[in-house]
């Protein structure tokens, strides 16, 4: 990617991100969700696009992050079992200091625990190539949601509520807006950096020919584990934020939404162009905007439309928007024949 082009995009996006909640106060939640979507697409692409391991269960880390966060937010100051038994916040009040301490630690731990979970689970599924990986991760995500729904300590099927924000509603939504935006920007910056290091090359090599990568002595398992852990870390954080925005965490619809967010991440990345840095961002913005604008006009057919979109995308437009641009204008992406004289 051309440096100038990247910079021309960074700046307006930053300005928009900071100004948006003040310019469009009514759309604050939708735009915050947009940043979460961008984060989803970016993190899915680490595995699905850059490394060629299509995980259909990344949403599992969303739920893990969400539960971890709330457990740390509450658990530092109260007994979890008693808290869930009392159905949430009314009997338990937190001081301002407790709330913010809990929130910060909760958010950090949600990322850490999700990353650890990914590294541990990675051991079981990374020997799995191709379809086994996809189906294995899909199964894990489904099972995670169902198991959480049977666990009384964390509120089982009826869920667990997050501590109540001590300030006004406006302050609350503004705070979480900027946390979501910050998380998305952080994800982008970190990914931009790691793709430029040896890590980026190694995961690309694994995507193109894992057997060759092994034969060349690359520590493939190490790279795969770290890739998934990075992905999980950020998804976990987004889970913590989203849980706090929602207010009440329920296992199937909110924490482990395999059939909504879980599918969106795949669809958005494919649409924008997998295996590129900007593709997922573009895909997420397009998808989310389209979805917000048209969703209600589909009268129940929106899910069918989503499935059709994935099929069409995969069958006819596999390279996505960025991939298509790269095919169309290879020179813009530095794909050129250069002779010695011109460069030396």
């Amino acid at each position: 990617m051309n440096k100038n082009f990247s910079f021309k995009l960074h700046f307006p996006i930053l300005v928009f991100g900071i100004a948006a909640p003040f310019l469009f106060p009514g759309l604050q939640l939708q735009i915050a969700t947009l940043w979460v979507m961008v984060l989803f697409a970016l993190t899915w692409d680490i595995m699905g696009g850059q490394m060629g391991y299509n995980s259909l269960g990344n949403i599992m880390f969303f739920g893990i992050g969400m539960y971890t966060s709330v457990l740390f937010q509450v658990g530092q100051f109260a007994e979890i079992g008693a808290y869930t038994a009392a159905h949430g916040g009314d009997d338990f009040t937190f001081t301002n200091a407790q709330y913010y301490q809990g929130l910060v630690i909760g958010i950090i731990m949600s990322g850490v625990v999700a990353a650890i979970a990914a590294a541990a689970l990675g051991w079981t599924v990374f020997g799995l190539r191709g379809p086994y990986f996809a189906i294995g991760t899909l199964g894990m995500a489904i099972a995670a949601g169902e198991l959480m729904g049977t666990w009384e300590w964390v509120g089982a099927g009826s869920g667990i509520s997050v501590p109540v924000f001590p300030g006004s509603a406006e302050a609350r939504s503004l705070l979480f807006y900027f946390l979501c935006f910050g998380a998305a920007v952080l994800t982008f910056v970190v990914l931009q950096w790691v793709y430029k290091t040896r890590f980026g090359l190694a995961v690309n090599a694994i995507r193109d020919d894992e057997e060759k990568a092994e034969a060349m002595g690359i520590h493939t398992v190490r790279y795969k584990t770290v890739a998934w852990a990075i992905s999980a870390f950020f998804v976990g954080i987004s889970g913590a934020l989203f849980g706090n925005i929602t207010g009440i965490i329920e296992p199937l619809e909110v924490a482990f939404p395999t059939v909504t967010f879980g599918i969106f991440m795949v669809a958005m990345t494919l649409l924008g162009g997998k295996g590129t840095l900007w593709g997922p961002v573009l895909g997420a913005v397009l998808f989310h905007t389209l979805k917000e604008v048209t969703w209600t006009y589909f009268l129940g057919w929106q899910w069918v439309a989503l499935g059709v979109l994935i099929i069409i995308n995969v069958v006819f437009f596999q390279q996505g928007i960025m991939g298509w641009l790269m095919e169309k204008f290879p020179e813009k992406f530095g794909i050129v024949v250069e002779n010695k004289e011109a460069t030396r």
């Binding site: 299509n54 191709g130 379809p131 996809a134 069918v304 069958v315």
Partner: peptide, 14 residues
């Protein structure tokens, strides 16, 4: 490998 998987995944949703 993944193309058929993702395409049938979309089909499953539909």
């Amino acid at each position: 490998l993944f193309t058929s998987l993702l395409a049938t995944f979309g089909l499953a949703i539909v």
